[in-house]
């Protein structure tokens, strides 16, 4: 794409993102994260080295948009599928891209055991606190008191338990090399999100272990609000419970040891 005369290109679709109309709802961060990832694939020149695994969830059709080799897994099984891919193709960069229902409910066992084995792939975990695809049911990460179609009177933690903090949880596993929670609520955070994914990919290339990037994400449709309101909601409601930050970084430790 060349800029019109007098204009300068400030944003464009990376060549690695197919020129298709996405099915995501307007303002949904799924599309933002897709774009960030595909920008990285372009910038890092890894289109021929990367293989992705999509989940069952709104991003089930990620393979329709990302112009890279991808597989579609059964609901919750992306980490097991990614394990199979990575074990057979250890020199490739492998990632799973999963929602909260997929990664932290039906797929919890696969997630935990992949992390515990230190499977050398990258989790991209889109935590929007709800089941988007099936029409807004409660997720393992739904906040206390949050209304969903299966918690119409608000999540009652005494009955259904507490929202799971996955980035913190996986940081406890020896096999995990990197765990960070990011978001995309403003340009600075979005750039930080991209840097985090890049770092995870780089660490994977060095074979350091499991890398886990959780994105505090939104679901304007499921939350029944505008995209703008969803951003405020993340900042006011989600981030106090799901704080941003790095929960584990083995390269930091190494540096400290050296010093």
């Amino acid at each position: 794409m060349t800029a019109r005369e007098g204009y300068k290109v400030v944003a464009k679709r990376p060549s690695t993102l197919l020129d298709k109309r996405m099915h995501y709802c307007p303002g949904c961060f799924h599309s933002t994260v897709h774009k960030l990832m595909m920008e990285l694939v372009e910038e890092m020149e890894i289109q021929d080295k990367i293989v992705g695994v999509c989940p069952v969830g709104c991003s089930v059709f990620a393979y329709e948009y990302m112009n890279i080799d991808m597989q579609e897994a059964a609901h919750g099984r992306a980490a097991a599928v990614a394990t199979g891919v990575k074990r057979m193709l250890p020199d490739k960069l492998v990632f799973s891209y999963q929602g909260d229902g997929d990664l932290a409910a039906i797929g919890t066992a696969e997630t935990i055991h992949a992390c515990n084995r230190g499977e050398n792939f990258t989790f991209i975990f889109i935590n929007n606190g709800i089941y988007g695809m099936t029409g807004g049911q409660m997720a393992p990460t739904t906040l206390e008191g949050q209304r969903t179609s299966t918690s119409p009177y608000g999540r009652d933690v005494a009955k259904v338990g507490y929202p799971l903090r996955m980035a913190e949880m996986v940081a406890n596993f020896e096999g995990v090399a990197y765990s960070q929670r990011v978001t995309c609520t403003n340009p600075a955070e979005t750039r930080r999100c991209k840097r985090a994914i890049k770092k995870a990919f780089e660490m994977q290339m060095k074979g350091l272990g499991t890398t886990f990037i959780e994105v505090a994400s939104n679901c304007p449709s499921g939350w029944k609000c505008t995209p703008e309101e969803s951003v405020t909601w993340i900042e006011d409601k989600m981030l106090p419970y799901f704080p941003l930050g790095v929960f584990k970084d083995v390269t930091k430790k190494e540096k400290k040891a050296e010093a």
Binding site: A105, Y131, M133, T134, P152
Partner: peptide
């Protein structure tokens, strides 16, 4: 149960009626 289309209305109905 666990949500899945096209039967989620069953659990959603039960959730509304629960109280």
């Amino acid at each position: 149960g666990y949500p899945i289309t096209p039967q989620s209305e069953i659990v959603e109905y039960l959730a509304i009626e629960e109280p």
